[in-house]
């Protein structure tokens, strides 16, 4: 059932200013921050994801909803942290060494955040050492790596190999994505999962956390 709430409506219409106003007002009325996230924001982002998967929505539709979500989340996150509310999982995200493309990675980050994950974004051109340092410092459940080029995607393998060397590979699930990434490539380099789009990235992250998902379209998840 579609939730009926101005926050949900603001998210669906991608109205960032309305999302901010409604969030402030609703919090003032005493509604719990987590309820806003779980009851309106996550359903709105999941709805956008479903429509994208169905070919009804395009990347701009996701981006404008993500912007509204981020505006509301900027207000809610400190409250959730203060209340020690756990996220669906912590994801360290970055575009790999040698690659400076970030539109796909940013969209994945926004979709994950909108679906209840905590995202630590390391940016672009991220060295294996930086990924390893982030694993040690931030203790994530998932490391997500992105690459746009066939000439840079092997940095994903270099990074996984470095994680093995550093003894941190088994602490995390490694998910990869980007235009040239295939299921076969993910298998070859020892990633746990991959997706070829931002909505599939959320699905595979949920699989990594042992959560239920509705569709595995465009998703690879290794079987033990």
């Amino acid at each position: 059932m579609t939730p009926s709430h101005p926050l949900y409506d603001a998210m669906i219409s991608g109205d960032a200013e309305a999302a901010r106003c409604v969030t402030v007002r609703t919090l003032a009325e005493g509604v719990a921050p987590l309820s806003l996230v779980n009851d309106y924001m996550i359903p709105a982002m999941e709805d956008a994801g479903k429509r994208f998967a169905a070919g009804e929505y395009f990347v701009p539709d996701l981006l404008i909803r993500a912007r509204a979500m981020k505006t509301a989340m900027a207000i809610l996150r400190p409250l959730l942290v203060a209340a020690q509310i756990k996220s669906a999982g912590r994801v360290v995200l970055g575009t790999v060494n040698g690659d400076v493309h970030d539109i796909g990675k940013n969209l994945v980050g926004a979709m994950l955040e909108g679906c209840g994950f905590e995202v630590v974004d390391l940016g672009v051109n991220v060295s294996p050492e930086k990924f390893i340092a982030a694993i040690n410092e931030r203790n994530p459940h998932i490391v997500g790596m992105s690459a746009l080029l066939t000439s840079t995607m092997y940095s994903m393998k270099t990074t996984i190999d470095a994680m093995v060397q550093a003894g941190v590979r088994d602490k995390v699930k490694v998910l990869i994505g980007g235009a040239p990434v295939t299921r076969q490539f993910a298998q070859e380099i020892g990633a746990d999962g991959s997706s070829n789009n931002a909505v599939g990235a959320v699905a595979v992250a949920k699989m990594a956390m042992g959560l239920q998902i509705e569709s595995t379209a465009g998703v690879y998840w290794r079987t033990a």
């Binding site: 060494n97 040698g98 690659d99 400076v100 493309h101 051109n125 080029l149 000439s151 840079t152």
Partner: peptide
């Protein structure tokens, strides 16, 4: 801006 043996890219 990127390693010597990676092709140029747009920022």
């Amino acid at each position: 801006d990127v390693p010597p043996d990676t092709g140029f890219q747009y920022h």
